[in-house]
Design a protein around this nucleic acid. Structure first.
Length: 265
DNA sequence: ATGGTAGCGGAGCTA
């Protein structure tokens, strides 16, 4: 099973690139972030034509997440799977696809360490951890895939010195991600690649993509049954090139999961 | 020189 994640930065603008990418990358499950669409504007028919079921959780101008699947899509939950107040921002969507519990996540940016949005980011990550503890078991096949807005380690950014005192690399954010690792999630891309300098996001400005000034912030955080089954992982830099690219590249993993009893396919 | 670009929406905010 091929599972992918891509922050598309407006699905309205990016739909042709997404259709093109699906055609050649052939993901079984694709998590999208920053669709920037209301649910009523989600192009479900375009994906149906490609053989995918889809669930979308949007709010309009900002945020918005989706899960596309050609291996089944059931038990959809918008936002946190808990009993607390619903998140007013559309940043999380759960679905079960081909026997794997999948979440598409768009973690708050944080902006700066002294910004209220940074505290919100840490609170949001803590709530995600509580959600996992409450509703899930790390022994089950599970992937939380998306734009985490966190570079897990210094070799996930082009120049650690340039990020001194900045968000995305702060100890508190990395500890919040570490709490999810402690619960039982693994940075599945790292099962196939241990070298630094592999990025999934590059600022549109100042030619940063061509200067190789990026960060690896798009992560497929997988439970042990999935992480142990990873056979291949890739960041598709080609998708960051060409006409009207997103500022993020898609990231994918291939997992060789044991056949399920009673599976559709 | 604190720059630069993209998207949304139609000015300023967000990233």
């Amino acid at each position: 099973m091929r599972i992918a994640t891509w922050n598309v930065n407006s699905l309205k603008v990016r739909l042709p690139r997404v259709e093109e990418w699906i055609d050649y990358a052939q993901p079984d499950v694709l998590c999208l972030q920053e669709t920037k669409l209301a649910d009523s504007a989600f192009p479900g028919l375009a994906f149906e034509a490609l053989g995918y079921e889809a669930a979308h959780h949007g709010e309009g101008r900002w945020n918005g997440v989706a899960v596309l699947s050609r291996v089944g899509l059931t038990d959809v939950v918008d936002g946190f799977d808990d009993d607390d107040e619903p998140d007013p921002q559309a940043r999380l969507l759960w679905a079960t696809c081909g026997g794997v519990r999948v979440a598409s996540v768009y973690v708050p940016n944080g902006r700066a360490l002294d910004d209220d949005h940074y505290a919100y980011k840490l609170d949001w990550l803590a709530r995600l951890r509580r959600n996992l503890e409450r509703a899930h078991d790390p022994a089950e096949p599970l992937v939380v895939a998306g734009d985490w807005n966190i570079a897990p380690a210094d070799d996930d950014v082009w120049d650690p010195a340039a990020f001194e005192g900045a968000t995305h690399v702060s100890p508190a954010e990395r500890e919040a991600l570490g709490a999810l690792v402690d619960w039982g999630l693994h940075d599945s891309f790292r099962r196939c690649h241990d070298e630094g300098g592999l990025f999934s996001w590059w600022d549109y400005r100042a030619g940063n993509f061509h200067k190789k000034k990026g960060m690896r912030i798009d992560l497929l955080m997988a439970s042990t049954p999935v992480a142990d089954a990873v056979t291949f992982a890739l960041i598709d830099r080609q998708a960051r090139k060409g006409s009207q690219p997103s500022d993020h590249a898609p990231v994918l993993i291939d997992v060789d999961l044991p056949a399920r009893e009673g599976a559709d396919r």
